[in-house]
Design a protein around this nucleic acid. Structure first.
Lengths: 331, 331
DNA sequence: TTGTAGGCGTTATCAA
DNA sequence: TTGATAACGCCTACAA
């Protein structure tokens, strides 16, 4: 196998305990001994076996991120925040994939099996009973996006996001404001429901009669193109579109609109959602609503850390991020 | 602490061995016993302690990805491939951050400390001596991007990429072809050097006298805008630009060019590099050279797996991915 | 089909 | 300042 602490101890003529102390730079070891031991460690390419250490300590020194999707811009930016924040904590980052709907089960396995000291579940739908159980067992679990009030979580104010979107568009004189969503694909996830409610509430408050929901199969490029087909096929097309389906669909729409002669924002105002890197790279500036994915990642990680460190108040802390309107050219 | 196999055994009135066998669905356990044990496991929310298992088995059942950057589109797409490929291997994915230049040291720590059974290092500059050592110790290490011939690695043919770019632009009648790069920031990384050589070789072969290298501080939006400043300030500006600095810079250039009245592709043809999601979402279609990041991720993971499984030939396998020209509107 | 015993590599406790 | 010993939770012989 590999080199063990025992072998190092033997070669250095000391006990394993001493080597262990040297590794943790304890002051209880003599200078001379320490030097000798370190030399041997260097020579032998010794690195402590992680499993041995963890087994003994009953921890895993790692944080898990559990999600059912990958190659996703939100996740990328969220993870950027997580990685930045975890850097000087000495903790490791572990990514776990879970079939959609299986995230709670996966978290249980991870936390009870000590694969990580805390878990962050992305867009996982967890019921209060389950969360109660995790809390009772003191297993730190942070929900991201689909939070449950009273349990640790990080969320975006989706209601305000849609509400502000409509209010802004209405303020610009738009009267027929449509929204794009994937209700079927993301059924049960809070952001669909919340954005829809925000949209409808705003229409009501602004005295706008027109309501049009464009149901999309997914939040991708193809769906963005699809939106244009839908709109071109309408008798009374909208004069504004809030892409609650995200910047990617908005960008694809912009591109397709240009190709097919629909003028943005003259014929139709387009407002994206996320302000991800995509919104920064469209040739025609995409107006959008910022969701601070990176800050959310940092917050989620810090919340997980608080939980680990025994901050009792954190067990019922939900952190909400507010939307921010970013105006460019498309609306 | 948590629930242990011993407690389960006691509650079920059997020995720990039996529980262990049940967990791995062994046929050596009677139906009745198995049922009883499983019920207790369920009831007690028992999950085997990972460290204990791994310590005993001398493995870690995990693959590590080591990199000095995050929130990066290439990495996102690469990781997408990795995650897809790792899914049914039963292995975990662990992400490690290493200061730029420290990747080899980190890999050593990871592999010798059994934090992972194999490591994939992104854009790490590793010397042959070090790699030799890892191979001798049979520590599976896969280099991605900056590979060393004769050692396991996955790479993109950067020379061909730049060569093809210039050839295509020249074929379109362009005569003053410029290239953008960040030589200082990415000093020592093969892709800078290779792309530069490909560019120069192609200019020579196409009998083009004009050579212009636009040095950028980074591969980001700001650098893209910077390119335009540079070009606008030239006495003899290029009529074509190959953004070896990537799609993001190209997209930012497109956007800025539109704002400042430079027409693409009439005044200047713009060719990106990567064909990442960014290239798909620019309003003006971005012509680019495709680097199959996702396929590279899959290949890297599979190579790591081969190494773990003892495929001797894999220890000197370098997998090279060829560039592919994607024509849209900008060039 | 089930049970007993030993050890994987580490660290914590206590003694020297 | 250093050393001996006993766990941590699991798995694998081997024994019953």
């Amino acid at each position: 196998m590999g080199v063990t602490i025992k072998q190092i101890a033997e070669l250095a003529g000391v006990a394993p305990t001493t080597v262990s102390l040297v590794l943790r730079d304890s002051k209880k070891v003599g200078q001379e001994t320490k030097r000798r031991v370190l030399r041997i460690i260097e020579e032998m390419d010794y690195y402590p076996n992680h499993s041995g250490k963890l087994l003994k300590q009953g921890r895993s020194d790692a944080i898990a991120v559990v999600s059912s999707y990958f190659q996703n811009i939100f996740k990328m930016e969220f993870m950027g925040g997580v990685e930045r924040a975890i850097r000087d904590s000495g903790l490791q980052l572990r990514q776990f994939y879970a079939e959609s709907g299986q995230e709670p089960a996966k978290c249980k396995e991870i936390l009870f099996g000590k694969m990580a000291d805390a878990a962050m579940a992305l867009s996982a739908i967890a019921d209060p009973g389950f969360l109660q159980k995790m809390r009772a067992a003191r297993k730190p679990l942070v929900l991201v996006e689909d939070v449950v009030e009273g349990f640790p979580g990080v969320r975006f104010d989706n209601y305000a996001c849609a509400y502000e979107a409509v209010r802004y568009l209405a303020g610009k004189g738009r009267r027929r404001i449509s929204i794009s969503l994937s209700m079927k694909t993301y059924m049960g996830h809070c952001f669909v429901d919340e954005r829809l409610r925000g949209y409808i509430a705003a229409l009501r408050d602004m005295d706008l009669a027109y309501t049009d929901i464009i149901e999309l199969p997914a939040y991708d490029l193809e769906s963005g193109r699809l939106m244009l087909d839908r709109i071109l096929g309408m008798k009374e097309p909208p004069d504004a579109l809030f892409c609650a389906s995200g910047d990617i669909t908005a960008a694809a729409f912009l591109k397709e609109a240009r190709l097919r002669g629909l003028r943005v924002p003259d014929d139709i105002a387009v407002l994206g959602c996320d302000d991800s890197i995509i919104a920064h790279t469209t040739t025609l500036g995409l107006s959008t609503i910022r969701q601070p994915a990176q800050a959310m990642g940092e917050a989620a990680l810090k919340l997980a850390l608080s939980l680990i460190e025994g901050d009792d108040e954190a067990w019922s802390r939900v952190i909400t991020f507010a939307p921010e309107l970013i105006i460019r050219e498309s609306a």
